[in-house]
Design a protein around this nucleic acid. Structure first.
Lengths: 264, 264
DNA sequence: CCAAAAGTGTTATGAATACACCCATGG
DNA sequence: CCATGGGTGTATTCATAACACTTTTGG
């Protein structure tokens, strides 16, 4: 603590000894403005499936810094809202309210390098969100454009360089979603209900970038208690036997998990 | 964004249109003080093993707010340090530098409820740390006392009520460490080198609160590539056959994992 | 009838469990 | 030689992977 004393509001003796005050008195006299504070943003990796592949929502920055670079959508946390509320609000503004209502939002990590933003000290709280295949959003006021990028198009020499440390955040987010669908039922949140087991399998294939055995996948999902529940009716395929329809079940985790195939 | 415009430094038009500036000019004119900012702390759940059971470091608060309550150690982030550096610094101050140097520190989550701190808006970045069995730390200036609490002593009617939302953070941290040792080699960081397989097993038993089959555990650890590597010599037991000694191996994850026994 | 996709059956392999059994030491 | 904990062998059970096979539709 001593190394940080001048900026540390928990070191009460700098403000007031406090020893002779009740907690109510202490709080009434507390001066919140006496210390240097970082700015705090939420940044979101909003995933969906596009052309059978994993895609993430990026916005083209219309203002400084990093004007003209693609970035994860996000914004500063309001003084009276939690980070999760702020993320939901931003998502609604980027993708529309009805889509945000269906999205599953989940805390990812925090990014705190003092130099990660050239303006000032900015700490980012990162979230991941999963939405069913959705139309491209309309750009907000401070973004020149907003669209889903297929992840494969973000690697290689043609790929845009992202603003801030968003390439790092995105890499963490991709790994998170890839490992998360192994032992949770999250993959189903990428689909509109009702859906078929094969559609769910294509979600896994898109996120992992592999092909899975349809027969074994079908069995695993059906045997996983509460993952999916049968719905009325049949899918109307362009070809082949019509598939049974399902909805998301009550379970949020799977035992045993559906493990990624060994990339060997 | 529009709902939050007045506190949002990314909405450049409020500060300056920016359109006619280079990025360098924009940054030179940027006023970081124009927006309301939260305070940001790091809080740590520092785990060790005490009396064969999982224990966590708590400090008794000497000042307001929550004076006289036990809390996770932590402190405010300095203006020029990352959260990880801040956590390491705080840990060194609480537990001693040599112990902090051996500790494995890992980001847990962030806690952002606007009302979680009665003083002002405070966002907490939570970390978990794992240290070999260590002497009780000496309390720092702003703590009346600091000691390891066996986790089982923190439940029940006799248990102290923690400050802030630290009971929630601690619950998340415990679940994290319990699941983390399933598929990482983290448990070995609770031990001084060299150690025996049985000592490692007792770490798992302490963290999960179960008893494990010594024979099967031994095989799983030995078969897990890079988890442990053989060291010279033998342990000198009080009873029974002397055990072989090992050091931490290069692997950080395990395939397949060592799964918790079903609590059924 | 044929093609194609959905879904079931069957076998082989690999890991986990339970537990019998051997090993190495101190008393 | 006995008690105790370290460590290996082995049979059973269970999940997975591979793939043959059946079902159900449209053309």
């Amino acid at each position: 603590m001593s190394a940080n004393r001048s900026t540390d509001p928990s070191t009460d003796s700098i403000v007031h000894s406090g020893d002779d005050l009740t907690e109510a008195e202490f709080l009434a006299r507390y001066d919140a403005g006496a210390y240097e504070r970082p700015s705090v943003t939420v940044d979101m990796a909003v995933f969906t499936i596009r052309e059978g592949r994993l895609a993430v929502l990026l916005v083209l920055r219309g203002g400084h810094p990093f004007r003209g670079r693609w970035a994860l959508p996000g914004g500063f946390i309001g003084p009276d809202e939690s980070a999760e509320v702020a993320a939901g609000r931003e998502l609604a503004e980027e993708c529309g309210a009805e889509l945000a209502a269906r999205a599953h939002l989940e805390a990812l990590d925090h990014y705190t390098d003092p130099d990660r933003d050239p303006r000032t000290r900015v700490i980012s709280l990162a979230y991941v969100a999963f939405v069913p295949d959705a139309p491209d959003p309309t750009a907000g006021d401070d973004a020149a454009a907003a669209r889903f990028w297929i992840l494969d198009d973000l690697v290689g020499p043609e790929a845009p360089e992202l603003a801030f440390d968003h390439d790092l955040i995105l890499a963490d987010a991709v790994e998170r979603v890839r490992s998360r669908i192994e032992y949770t039922t999250l993959a189903a949140t990428f689909l509109d209900e009702p859906f078929t087991i094969a559609e769910l399998r294509r979600i896994y294939e898109a996120i992992w970038g592999v092909t899975l055995d349809p027969a074994n996948f079908h069995r695993k999902v059906r045997n996983s208690d509460g993952f999916v529940i049968a719905a009325e009716g049949r899918a109307t395929p362009t070809l082949g036997r019509p598939a049974a329809l399902y909805r998301r079940g009550p379970a949020s985790t799977m035992h045993p998990p559906i493990l990624r195939p060994d990339p060997t």
